[in-house]
Amino acid sequence: MTGQEPPKNPHGDDGPNPPDTGMGMTAVAYLLSGMLVWGGIGWLVDHWVGTRGIFAGLGAVLGMAGGVYLIVRRLGA
């Protein structure tokens, strides 16, 4: 197989990613990261202010929105 030609028309550095470039993994990572990061920051704010979880909830939703936005910008189009 070493003697084989490398695949024709491999995508270059500038081409689009091939369909299974771990994009699913990246998408899941963005979603989870969004929730965890901003949910976590919200949780800290809760501790700081003394509320019982409102900021953690808001943060998780906000982070999720950010994650979705990132998926669209980075992986879409």
Binding site: S33, G66, Y69
Partner: peptide, 26 residues
């Protein structure tokens, strides 16, 4: 990421977390 400046503060922590912390861990 390519995004308007006012959402960047929201997105940069997410990018950092997912690119530099989640990757090796996962």
């Amino acid at each position: 990421p390519p995004a308007p400046w006012f959402i960047l503060p929201l997105l940069i922590p997410i990018e950092f977390f997912s690119n530099f912390l989640v990757r090796p861990f996962s």
